Computed example of a mutant assay.
Amino acid sequence: MNRRLLLATACLALLAVTSGCLGIGTGPIPEDRIDSDPAADYAWETDRTVHVTIQENTQFRTVMSLNGSEPTVELFRRDGFGGTNPLPVQSVRYRYPNGTVLTGSEIRERGGEVRQTREETIVELPSGEPQNGSALAFTSEGTPKRFTLPTYADGTYEVVLPPNREVELPVFGQVSPRNYETERDDAGQVHIVWAEPVTADTVSVRFYLQRDLYIFGGVAALVVAVGIGGLLYYRRQIQRLRQRRLEMGVDVETDDDEFDDGPPPGMR
């Protein structure tokens, strides 16, 4: 009985932690995270509403233009069960229309906040400051060879792939929504651009390394070679077995007419 009670208590505690009921990980995000330097400069001069640069370490840098209509920005990911989880952020920056950039702690000093709840990460913008024409930037975490992000803002989008990544082949690459164009910069990196306002709930990109095609081709060729080799070996074994049976007189062909005695008795 004690074991069952202990097991039930442990399961309840695990459920509480995984569902966020204990509030673990909520509250203000530490300053060392929101003040950390991004891997590279943010693309402040973008002419898109949302500009995303995917890094080779699967993290991505985002610059989001603000129109001044909302005092807060809510960042999240959908969990697939109708709910949301907070988007982990670091290197948070706020840029005024005049070009002045604030770090995460400076946002707090001017009346703003960067905090996390069980469902989302909330960035409260500096109070009493003009927002129209300003921008918010942050770095977050992604997954290898795939980028997915809700469309937090209405407008145009641009996603820059890491070096040597492609999306052209349908089996390996996929982009959603479909009304996009691709461009290449001077360094050869692929830019996926939605020049018209995105109305979908999510922007999703699956991409691949060029070398992935060679690896897949090599594996496919190996599988075909093994299959052909197995088939030839099987046929050779069948032929050997047939020859052995012939030598033993098992498979001697006979003329059916030689043993044809006509119809059965009573049918003549």
Rank of each mutant, 00 (worst) to 15 (best):
L169Q: 12
F172E: 11
I122F: 04
T18I: 13
D186G: 08
L169F: 11
E181Q: 13
M1Y: 03
R61G: 07
F259G: 05
R242E: 04
G82M: 07
P263A: 08
G142K: 02
P163C: 03
V190G: 00
R245H: 10
V89P: 03
I107V: 15
S65M: 13
I192F: 05
P30C: 06
E106G: 08
R206M: 09
R236D: 08
Y234C: 07
M1V: 11
N98V: 07
L161G: 03
T72C: 05
G25Q: 14
A135S: 14
L161R: 02
F138L: 09
G128L: 10
R110E: 07
E120M: 13
V159D: 00
F60E: 02
L102F: 15
I122L: 15
R184Y: 14
R3E: 13
D154S: 15
A39D: 09
D251V: 12
M64W: 00
R268P: 08
F216D: 08
R146V: 13
V171T: 12
M64D: 01
V226S: 09
G111C: 07
T202N: 13
R4M: 09
D79L: 04
T100N: 13
E181A: 11
G262Q: 10
M248Y: 10
D154P: 00
E31K: 10
V219K: 04
T46C: 02
D212K: 01
N2G: 11
V175E: 04
R118H: 12
S127M: 09
R108P: 01
S69M: 11
G266Y: 11
G27H: 13
Y180E: 00
G142L: 05
A43I: 04
Q174A: 10
I34R: 00
Q55V: 00
L136S: 02
M267N: 08
G20V: 05
W44C: 03
L5C: 10
L12T: 14
S140V: 06
G83P: 05
E129R: 10
Y208T: 06
S105L: 05
A137K: 01
F76R: 08
A187F: 09
L161A: 07
T143E: 15
D255V: 02
A40H: 13
G173D: 05
T199G: 15
D261P: 11
P170Y: 03
G128K: 10
P88Y: 04
F147P: 00
Q174K: 09
G188V: 05
G218I: 06
V250E: 15
V226P: 01
R236K: 08
E119N: 12
S36C: 12
F60Q: 05
A16R: 13
F207N: 03
E124T: 15
Q116K: 15
A187G: 04
T58D: 09
E74A: 12
R245K: 14
G133Y: 10
Q237M: 15
D41H: 14
G80C: 03
L169S: 11
A16I: 05
G20Y: 10
M248D: 12
Q55L: 15
R95E: 02
M64Q: 11
R146K: 12
G27D: 07
G217L: 07
L14A: 15
R244D: 06
L5N: 13
A137W: 00
V159C: 06
S91T: 06
F216I: 14
E258G: 00
T151W: 01
G27T: 10
F216K: 09
S204I: 00
T254M: 08
T49E: 10
